[in-house]
């Protein structure tokens, strides 16, 4: 994020902003929030301030996972937002633990014997839920009103909150940029990326998919899955569908 928003001597931020390293935004903001608490206790600051940390799926699911887990467990009054584009795009299309099964990336390339990524994605939203923090949510840019409402809610809640936002990536997912919102919509409709929130441990779907969209419908629009539509690789699509169905059923039970 610092790469696009803060090229010295310019900054796009009209609020205080710090970047320290790649994998430690949660730990860094822990320190900022701790200093704020210290100043508040001493009466040096009176204002209520919001603390928001951003990370991509690489900095959140993978290299920053420990730092995030620690900060959540310690109960800092912060909102952590993950922009999940399912791939390391800072370095350019390398697999992350958020990359879906079958996707071609430069470190899980589709080849003659291996059909892209061979593992399912990590369910970070549920891992955050397991931290028993007051608010966890999953959102997508196609449903922007739902997204903004979740951010508002998270900021109104005291304690650590986490929002995982699907962030379709034209370059990494291989589709024309004009289709970004459509791809996001279909990710939600296909139940691959359910929109839900977990408030004080209670799951609630914030949007119920209206259409029958299969994983195949969603995947065929994206070049990263192209190799799955030939020969025996088609089984991977079936596996992906099974996994999505299984996760959806579980979520459905949790919310009802």
């Amino acid at each position: 994020m610092e790469v696009v928003s803060t090229i010295f001597p310019y900054t796009a931020w009209n609020v205080p902003y710090i970047h320290s390293a790649f994998e430690n935004s949660a730990a860094t903001i822990s320190g900022v929030e701790a200093a704020y608490k210290a100043f508040k206790k001493k009466g040096k600051i009176k204002k209520k301030l919001n603390f928001i940390a951003f990370g991509g799926d690489g900095g959140t699911y993978d290299i920053g996972f420990q730092s995030l887990s620690g900060a959540m467990e310690r109960g800092h009054d912060i909102l952590y937002v993950c922009y999940d584009n399912e791939v390391y795009m800072n370095t350019g299309i390398q697999r992350s633990s958020a990359t879906p099964m079958g996707a071609h990336t430069t470190t899980s390339p589709a080849g003659r014997v291996i059909p892209g990524k061979t593992q399912f994605r990590k369910d970070l939203t549920e891992i955050m839920t397991a931290h028993d923090i007051p608010y966890v949510a999953q959102a997508a840019p196609s449903h922007w009103l739902d997204l903004t409402r979740k951010v508002e809610k998270a900021l109104s809640i005291k304690g650590p909150t986490f929002i995982n936002i699907l962030s379709p990536c034209p370059l990494g997912w291989r589709y024309p940029p004009s289709q970004t919102i459509e791809i996001s919509k279909l990710a939600v409709e296909s139940r691959f990326w359910p929109l839900y929130e977990v408030e004080n441990g209670k799951h609630k779907l914030t949007y119920k998919p209206k259409k029958e969209v299969s994983m195949e419908d969603w995947m065929k629009l994206q070049g990263r899955f192209r190799h799955l539509f030939t020969g025996k690789n088609k089984n991977v699509i079936k596996d992906c569908q099974k996994q999505v169905d299984r996760k959806w059923e579980k979520l459905w039970t949790l919310q009802s």
């Binding site: 320290s20 860094t28 320190g31 701790a34 200093a35 420990q66 620690g70």
Partner: peptide, 24 residues
């Protein structure tokens, strides 16, 4: 003092950096 019992030394210094940048 606000004592932050972090989960690693990497996070210890990261939090120190955040706190120092905040003016602490």
């Amino acid at each position: 003092t606000e004592f932050v019992a972090v989960e690693s030394e990497h996070s210890a210094l990261s939090a120190c950096i955040g706190a120092a940048a905040a003016g602490g």
